[in-house]
Design a protein around this nucleic acid. Structure first.
Lengths: 164, 164
DNA sequence: TATTGTTATACTCTATAACTATA
DNA sequence: TATAGTTATAGAGTATAACAATA
């Protein structure tokens, strides 16, 4: 259910958090006092902070996911990446193109199979991930700032049971 | 971050839950044991159940929100609806057109201002909301099925503090 | 035949700009 | 001038279909 982050500078929305009409699900009055409603509101705040944390980085959530997947599975090819992300091939291609254009990854020829490329992080890509790790720590702290450590653990446990 | 629900019958995805690359945010390994990650996973399940509940109804989350807003604020006009939903005028227009085409609402002329229409639910629209209320109760029960009543209350309280 | 990467195309949702008719 | 509704257009994201090169 996620919106997307425009990374082109031309769009005036590039600086802000994406909005959808569904964001106003708050107005769904018979959802008051519902768990779905509470989850949504908390997640809206989490996503807002997450997006803010992403800030001016040349990344959208989707590209961030692709980048971290490539980091975890070095020399992955495009078809495998698409399967990992559960998206269509052409969609993966666009993410890869964007990450390559941004200089975070590069395509390398594969020795035994001239059809496929192997994807790997560049030095700037690794630096970006390091930056993200630091930013994420701050994000987590902000998100849980109104909870004690014990309450945070409690919440994590309850959420994991809801998530199934 | 939100995906959308196709309601046209032409799309093969019309029957399924929408997918985005950001859905695979799970792969973001340095989000493990994070509150943001736990929130997202729980919300993904909630949204999945929610979407399943919506089922074959001629509604998307956005249209559902617009419908319930009109129900709560009878004779609202388009510009006000757009402000309530925090969306642009033309976006509201499309929602309204869709809801009117589906027969759930109707535009009525306003006495003192010939520029604006007043929006109100039709009988089928009210019936749809009644159906939704029933379906939502079942949805809530499924979502909290792994929690006791006390745990559910605890979770609601913690979530409301995270939501700020 | 099957797979990898790619291009072409289409669809949904959203937004901004500009128009019209009223106020 | 300002506002309500509308139209036109554009952009981000997604998907499917079809293709060339290679396996």
């Amino acid at each position: 259910m996620h919106a997307t982050m425009p990374t082109t500078k031309k769009t005036s929305a590039a600086a802000g958090k994406p909005r959808t009409a569904a964001d106003a699900l708050d107005r769904f009055d018979f959802q008051s006092d519902s768990l779905g409603y509470a989850l949504r509101r908390a997640q809206v705040r989490a996503y807002g902070l997450f997006f803010e944390m992403l800030g001016a980085l040349e990344l959208s959530p989707a590209r961030l996911t692709a980048l971290s997947t490539i980091a975890m599975e070095t020399d992955i090819n495009q078809a495998t990446l698409a399967r990992r992300l559960n998206i269509a091939g052409p969609s993966a291609l666009k993410l890869i193109d964007a990450l390559e254009d941004a200089g975070f990854i590069r395509r390398k020829d594969v020795a035994n199979d001239r059809r496929s490329y192997s994807l790997a992080l560049t030095a700037p890509g690794k630096a970006m991930l390091d930056t993200l790790r630091a930013n994420l720590a701050a994000y987590e702290a902000r998100l849980a700032s109104r909870l004690t450590a014990a309450e945070r653990e409690q919440l994590l446990a309850l959420l994991s049971r809801v998530a199934s």
